[in-house]
Design a binder for these strands. Structure first.
Lengths: 242, 242
DNA sequence: ACGGAAGGCGAAGGTCGTTCGTCAAGACCC
DNA sequence: GGGTCTTGACGAACGACCTTCGCCTTCCGT
């Protein structure tokens, strides 16, 4: 047995419970969970690992969180709090406001690449306070743009669904790259042969893949996102003209 | 010990390996996995339970599938195979075709409520054969409608993203209801007090919730889905006019 | 007839979520 | 000051999970 593992029967040996930190709290736990998720993905979040990062045992977390699923809900809403709440000036351009919010939402999802998958499990209607505040605010934006409340609801759902859907694919890709530890370039190179073989019999897909082969992938994703967003906004704007 | 558990040392007691079924195969495994997922959700799929449903041990599956993640990829692509591949007649209405495909895709996602969440993990660009065939086909639809190939790609991404995004929320809700074992009505009633309390301070949300309180929820979801879809198609159609 | 491949499976290692009982430390009341 | 209650933390343990390994049976091609 190593000497430093021998229990020394003295007051001074006792670790003198460290309480200079507020110990543990729901806020600290959720914040650390988000950090862990960002760094290592949803699969790497276990209560034990999260506890260890907080200098605590795994079971201590249950005093504050009750459940792992509950913890995920809290983490999702925490990130919802990062979404920009742009004011809709009365005479301002509602299109510009909505577009900026949509871009901000996409950026948030890409920053937290586990978010899209978790929303797929948890759903969009889960009553988190930050999510409610965001929804209320955006309904207001559409209302002052001229939509009646029920149509504003549909419009908000459409924009949110579009952003969430298109970011899901990008986020999944980013998550895979992050988990592999390789760079985005290496990963693409490694995947290329399989992709080329898979699309051999599909001329249109082959052409699309070839076109993206040497282009800037990030820029292409940005353009594609904005294209669909603008079409959706076009369609919404046309409803206001009548 | 019950008598029927005593090992009888006789040839006739041996179960005489049942091989009238083709034993096990990747196809059988994936089909049963989809059935299990539909019935009990993604959380209930374990290799042991899946094996048991196929009268096999858990580890036998690894001869055919290699991985649980791989099994999920196969299951996702299996469901992709259910998507309708509507032909785009040359003089026909491309809008109608795309709308019908979109509705079919939503119906498929709602029929397999685990799908949306899994796509969020796996991503849209995973090279499954059914998914490739579907993409190639839809690119063709947009091309014959008059879009250049790169714009057809963006248009397809937009429509797919919208459908996926809006179905995600509905599917998550359906999955929760299915897991709870209660009826949709019971679940809504049970959730109502919490929802009412949560939206108390948000007038627009409160009005929306109240409006949906006694309306037909399914019909309302259908309408909301079609609203956003039509706006997106409006925006795409406007691009063809010029 | 026989050798090798393929398929199936039990045991086991390691991780996970979660519950329970226990223990230390402060809060509060008489 | 002393006793009691509440809060927070934690180790042990249960059951379920994925996956690897080695062994056994079955079958097929030659």
């Amino acid at each position: 047995m190593p000497a430093d593992e021998q229990p020394i029967p003295s007051v001074w040996a006792k670790p003198r419970r460290e309480r200079e930190q507020p110990a543990l709290s729901r806020e600290l736990i959720v914040a650390e969970a988000v950090r862990l998720l960002d760094e290592e993905g949803a699969g790497a979040l276990s209560m034990r690992r999260l506890g260890a990062r907080l200098n605590a045992g795994a079971t201590s977390l249950y005093r504050h969180v009750g459940n792992k699923d509950e913890l995920f809900e809290l983490a999702v809403d925490e990130v919802y709090g990062e979404l920009p709440l742009l004011a809709a000036e009365d005479g301002g351009d509602w299109r510009e406001t909505v577009a900026r919010v949509a871009h901000g939402m996409r950026a948030t999802i890409l920053r937290h690449h586990w978010l899209a998958a978790k929303i797929g499990e948890v759903g969009l209607a889960y009553l988190g306070p930050n999510m409610l505040r965001y929804s209320e605010h955006m309904l207001g934006v559409f209302e002052t743009a001229g939509f009646a409340l029920d149509e504003a609801d549909n419009a908000l759902s459409a924009v949110t669904a579009y952003v969430l859907g298109i970011s899901t694919g990008e986020a999944a890709w980013a998550a895979m790259v992050a988990r592999s530890g390789q760079s985005r370039q290496e990963w693409a190179e490694r995947l290329w042969p399989a992709a080329e073989r898979a699309v051999r019999d599909y001329p249109r897909l082959r052409a699309r893949y070839a076109a993206q082969r040497d282009g800037d992938l990030a820029a292409s994703n940005d353009d594609s996102f904005d294209y669909g967003l603008q079409r959706l906004l076009d369609g919404l704007q046309a409803r206001l003209g009548s």
